[in-house]
């Protein structure tokens, strides 16, 4: 399977999320948006899997469908051996006690009328945790301290916090149910570099101390390289490459991964001798009318690109060192998969 070495906690198989695109005026269905189109991956216990790709590639939709914040249109999601998609309301609540999400914009996801402490106590009450009111109050303060805030912050409202503090609050809320798995959807994208460093340190401390597993969604490739054990690259609703972070950044195989990594501006690049950027042309196609064959072929600059790429959709196949790539030309270069 497309897995790392850790024991599997979450397994996603052939997950799809297709939306009906409707005409604004008539309401008639114009077509199908294949936001997520048959993707498979696993997240191990205590492992951080990075999910990267550009806007509209389906990263966030993937996260929301596997937590059933959206009902996926196809595939399977198995969490700790239990099928998530067939859970009833009761089982789903228990699942959400173990799998949480933190959003990019902490302000938009915090209730402006609840104090930090009140918000945490509410979650504890809903999930029947930490006993009675006094127990909940004590636990809320513990949670604030766990994410680097102080007891006196419990009485403050979201608008009284800075961006970084709000993100800490979002993390505290996710931690309140003592989850094993957290989806982090662009958790540091809205923050300044120096604040971002503080939150990244917090996330790696929590991962080490509490044994948390993360699905870390980000468009910033440097952030993912810093924090994640493995990385999956998405393009137009599909995973085109997945593997250990160190290997994927050092020796990317898929032409899209290469272009993506090459586009990242860096402090050292000007001084790298003979460096030439692989520049992609144009914009990604619409997920309403994806190209035939390999979805990346119209923008691909692989030297061996040919008729086969236009015709056949490649599957993810192993290409050594725990990496999987969905590229016909890279597969044949390696003499077939494993």
């Amino acid at each position: 399977m497309i897995a790392g070495e850790a024991e599997v906690l979450l397994e996603v198989m052939d997950l799809s999320m297709h939306f009906a695109a409707r005409d604004g005026a008539s309401g008639r269905v114009r077509g199908l948006v294949r936001a997520v189109d048959g993707i498979s991956f696993t997240v191990g216990r205590g492992e951080a899997l990075g999910l990267v790709g550009e806007s509209g590639c389906g990263k966030s939709t993937t996260a929301r469908s596997l937590l059933r914040l959206l009902e996926p249109t196809g595939g399977r999601v198995v969490f700790d051996g239990v099928d998530v998609l067939s859970m009833d309301a009761r089982a789903l609540r228990a699942f959400r006690g173990r799998a949480q999400i933190v959003f990019q914009d902490p302000f938009g996801s915090l209730n402006p009328r609840l104090t930090a402490g009140g918000m945490l106590e509410e979650v504890l009450q809903v999930h029947h945790l930490a006993g009675e009111a006094t127990g909940r109050r004590r636990r809320a303060v513990e949670l604030l301290e766990l994410v680097g805030l102080r007891a006196e912050h419990a009485g403050r409202y979201p608008h009284e916090f800075s961006g970084g503090q709000r993100q800490r609050l979002g993390i505290a809320r996710a931690l309140s149910v003592e989850p094993e798995f957290i989806v982090l959807d662009e958790p540091v994208s809205a923050l300044d570099v120096s604040v971002q460093a503080q939150i990244l340190n917090l996330l790696s401390d929590l991962k080490a101390d509490l044994g948390l597993a993360y699905l870390f969604i980000a468009h910033d490739l440097a952030v993912v390289e810093h924090l994640c054990d493995r990385v999956a690259v998405m393009y137009l609703g599909k995973i085109v490459e997945i593997g250990p972070a160190e290997r994927l950044y050092r020796a990317p195989r898929h032409p899209y991964t290469k272009a993506l990594l090459s586009a990242v501006p860096s402090l050292d690049r000007k001084s790298e001798p003979g460096y030439e950027r692989t520049m992609l042309t144009g914009d990604p196609p619409s997920p309403m009318s994806p190209p035939s064959g390999c979805v990346f072929h119209p923008r691909c600059s692989h030297p061996k690109k040919d008729e086969e790429c236009r015709r056949d959709m490649p599957d993810l196949e192993e290409c050594g060192e725990g990496c999987f790539v969905a590229c016909i030309k890279e597969r044949s270069r390696l003499g077939g998969g494993a």
Binding site: V193, S194, A197, L200, N201, V223, H226, A245
Partner: peptide
Amino acid sequence: LLASLPGRRSRGTRLAVIPGVA
């Protein structure tokens, strides 16, 4: 600021942090 940038060199380590707030 430069030391707080994540990336290859920082993998597996804690990032340097500027104490305090702006």
